[in-house]
């Protein structure tokens, strides 16, 4: 494996559209639920152990080589609100575009060909990781980190938080990210024999509720 490929895939500057998404942070800031570093950390920790864990499981499973279309269906069953399914596929299409340019391979072409409307972003992330020679655990790490990196950056922009505080929050979440990635990769290792139902399906009611709510706003800074 190339450790540098993992850094590239997980880099917020990788042109996959993530910069315009707050992962629910814009809605949380608007309601006052996130207003300082402490509440930012609570938000990120909660998102990591719910949406982040679920995404990490899907990404790790895709990186094992499991059928990405079946995993896309599994992502659908784990995403109960239309707004977040829409965003998941949109980010998936955008990541696919960047991944095909960076690590061209038949597996990524296969997704584009069979699901032109896109597959959920974590599934693309896993297939891209595999194309880059990374392991399922690497893919899970990238997904877990992605689940908190975006919201933390968005909070800095939305609340004018001290960026050093936000970086420190992410630093404190490192062990949790590792745990989540490990749990996700373990589950992904069982998918080949036990099917996608063994993958994490952790869910957070408020992320679903506010995700749909945010999509109905007419004026917003972030796409989600």
């Amino acid at each position: 494996m190339s450790r540098t490929a993992l850094l590239l895939l997980a880099d917020g500057r990788f042109p996959a559209g993530g910069h315009a998404h707050s992962g629910g942070m814009e809605a949380a800031v608007a309601s006052g639920a996130v207003h300082d570093t402490t509440s930012l950390e609570a938000f990120c920790r909660g998102r990591l152990h719910t949406a982040g864990l679920t995404a990490a499981g899907l990404a790790a499973a895709a990186a094992t080589g499991h059928d990405p279309l079946a995993l896309d269906d599994a992502a659908d069953t784990r995403t109960p609100v239309p707004a977040l399914r829409h965003i998941g596929r949109r980010l998936g299409r955008q990541l696919l575009r960047a991944a095909r340019a960076t690590w061209p391979c038949p597996e990524l072409d296969h997704i584009a060909h069979h699901r032109p409307g896109g597959v959920h972003q974590p599934v693309v992330l896993g297939v891209a990781a595999r194309a880059a020679g990374l392991t399922p655990l690497d893919a899970a790490h990238a997904a877990a980190y992605d689940s908190v990196g975006g919201p933390a950056t968005a909070a800095v922009r939305l609340l004018s938080l001290d960026p050093f505080d936000a970086a420190a929050v992410l630093g404190r979440l490192a062990d949790d990210c590792d745990d989540v990635a490990g749990e996700a990769a373990d589950a992904a290792g069982r998918v080949a024999t036990a099917g996608t139902t063994v993958l994490p399906a952790a869910s957070a009611p408020l992320l679903d509720i506010t995700g749909e709510h945010h999509a109905a706003w007419t004026v917003r800074l972030f796409a989600s």
Binding site: R13, P15, A16, G17, G18, H19, A20, H21, S22, R90, R93, Q94, R97, A98, A154, R157, L158, R220, L221, F222, A223
Partner: peptide
Amino acid sequence: AVETGACPHTAIRDDISANLE
């Protein structure tokens, strides 16, 4: 309309994927 996450220049220069979409 394309959302730009408070960074309009990023959406037209550094990460153009949403605009390409």
